[in-house]
Design a protein around this nucleic acid. Structure first.
Lengths: 226, 226
DNA sequence: CTCTTGTGGATTGTTGACAATATACCTAGA
DNA sequence: TCTAGGTATATTGTCAACAATCCACAAGAG
């Protein structure tokens, strides 16, 4: 009996997914105050399941709620965004180390193939921030999963990445950075393929550090205003 | 207008807190399948707010839910518990580093005073695992908060610590360990007082590493069965 | 004797109506 | 004109009933 994953989706689950993607994609802008009835008509459901979904999203930090006052999409300040990357640095470093110890050879091969397709996408979709962000997300997603650390993957994929992706689309990609990032990705995978956990951790931390510095620079230059 | 924190607690909030502490204290054992109606009569509320609380707890990983089948308290396996400590190691290391950079002198003085009272508690309540665990929690709580990293503190205090505390009470405390742990705490605080972030991070990581090894030993010896 | 299958019962998911509260506006006074 | 206070409205929090789904048990076939 392959009771893999309960395929019964409840309306609350549906609302949860829809809202999450709506927030990440920017359909609901940070700071927006959203009314429950609006959402009900939007997703064709009643307030019961909706409130459950709102509760889950609040618990994950994507919404802030004040009793009797309503919910609004979380607005991450510039400094908080930087702090997010500090957390990512240590957590994804750990993920890379454990991935180097635990990923199967097949997974590593797939990861390398993924990078090839990313490279093609970068050349193809020159300047299209969307594809670059998606490729980047794909890479980090695989490593988080490959760590075989359930809770770690859950925290990264279920918490941090959604918040990061909220703001990633509006980051300007300076010329040449995608290729540099891809090079960093390649070296991380090489370290994983060599089963060198320490090196993988070091490289991943440096990779995210670079991303953080890039954001800090954009903030200082006033390019990124949030 | 000191609009600090809305003091209006909704019943869902109430149920959330009660359930959380019930799970942590062990009143609801891991793996227990809990019915909604039971909880309703227990907390004197209806299923609406209760389900919202359940949703939040599920989102935080304290409950697992299968549609139409009910919710049960999460059962963390031995290996998953160890993985939890690996996550704590890197995250609390970061917290210690940032706390060293950002805590006020007053907070550091309070922290030192806290350790003094912990020492008294250890001598007094010899072998009373409860007080030791509470003192330990207090220490780590203050450092997480002192990091001034909102999301980091949120993840540590709102996610990881609850899961760790679920199992901390049933850990046997080998003779002399509380004093050793206290010594480690003192050295961490010293590093923070010196504003030496790197050292604080190193010491904190080593401290949690020691706790992890202790757990692994207990698992191997069959003392800890979960 | 074991495995499959069908039904009864209980539990969950959902709905719409009711009660409580914060925001916004309007009025009155300084 | 600006501030303070009260009230109205809209939105949220809560409740109890309805519908859909899974689990356990029992009966029958292999």
């Amino acid at each position: 009996m392959p009771d893999i994953t309960s395929q019964t989706y409840t309306r609350a689950d549906e609302a949860f997914d829809c809202l999450q993607t709506a927030i990440v994609k920017g359909d609901l802008a940070p700071g927006d105050k959203i009314g429950e009835l609006d959402l009900c008509s939007r997703f064709e459901l009643t307030r019961g399941p909706l409130r459950e979904a709102l509760g889950r999203l609040e618990s994950r930090g994507l919404l802030v709620r004040r009793p009797h006052a309503g919910v609004k999409v979380v607005a991450v300040s510039a400094s908080e965004l930087v702090e997010l990357y500090r957390i990512r640095e240590v957590m994804e470093g750990l993920a890379a180390r454990q991935a180097a110890e635990r990923m199967t050879d097949q997974e590593i091969a797939d990861l390398q193939a993924t990078l090839d397709s990313h490279e093609a996408m970068i050349d193809e979709a020159r300047g299209q921030a969307y594809y670059q962000a998606e490729g980047d997300y794909d890479f980090h997603h695989r490593i988080a999963t490959g760590s075989r650390n359930t809770k770690l993957a859950q925290m990264l994929l279920g918490d941090l990445y959604y918040m990061v992706r909220m703001y990633r689309y509006r980051l300007s990609t300076s010329a040449g950075r995608p290729h540099r990032a891809l090079g960093e990705h390649r070296r991380i995978v090489e370290a994983i393929a060599l089963r060198d956990g320490e090196l993988a951790e070091f490289l991943m931390k440096r990779h995210i550090n670079a991303a953080r510095k890039n954001i800090e620079k954009q903030i200082q230059e006033g390019i990124l205003t949030i």
